[in-house]
Amino acid sequence: MKSLKKAAFGAVCATLIAAPAFMMGAGNATESVEAAAKLSIGDKAPDFTLVDLNGEEHTLSDYTAAGNTVVLEWFSPSCPFVIKHYREDTGTMNKIAADHAENNVVWLRINSGHTKHSSADKALNIKTASEWNIETPILMDGSGEVGKSYGAKRTPDMYIIGADGTLLYHGAIDNRSDAAAPGKVNYVANALEEINAGKKISKPETKPYGCSVKYD
């Protein structure tokens, strides 16, 4: 009986909360598993505009049109595979971003977690950015639209977009797929070195690993 009451109460809550969204034309629940993109190396990267934690807009094509290479890192402050790259003893992401900042490389983190998940909580992301010394933007994609347009499934899931707007690299950050420590081979750092040297990326596609992007 108690559980029935709880279920009924929950249903009322859900209806009340969902009603305005439904009236505003929110997506049908049966379409919750949308088709995801499968981008191939050399494809035009989907353009997007997202807002960062300070409320500032960032548009991919603005960066590429200015001659920048853009690294997109799918991000979650709660995922152990992300955390291992931001620990004091590792600092993988910040280090690579800093090493290449002068080579016209822009590093954007995207959090595509649905707003109902704690990992997509703006306050948590602000706190994390401060604690992890993240200096480049964390873009919030609460609808998951941008993540799905790239087919991003994991955190971290890494994409490198060239100044011509095409996809140059997609895959893992490195070659160690557990949550304990970074791998010895960093695919993104290697790819950025090769781009900077005007070479072809020797390993443009690797298998990403990490937590699932919490789209729902």
């Binding site: 919750s32 598993v33 949308e34 088709a35 995801a36 595509s112 998951g144 993540g147 799905k148 087919g151 991003a152 499934k153 699932s212 992007v213 789209y215 729902d216």
Partner: peptide
């Protein structure tokens, strides 16, 4: 376990 975003585990 099929999750939104075409994620299959």
């Amino acid at each position: 376990y099929l999750a939104p975003g075409q994620i299959l585990d």
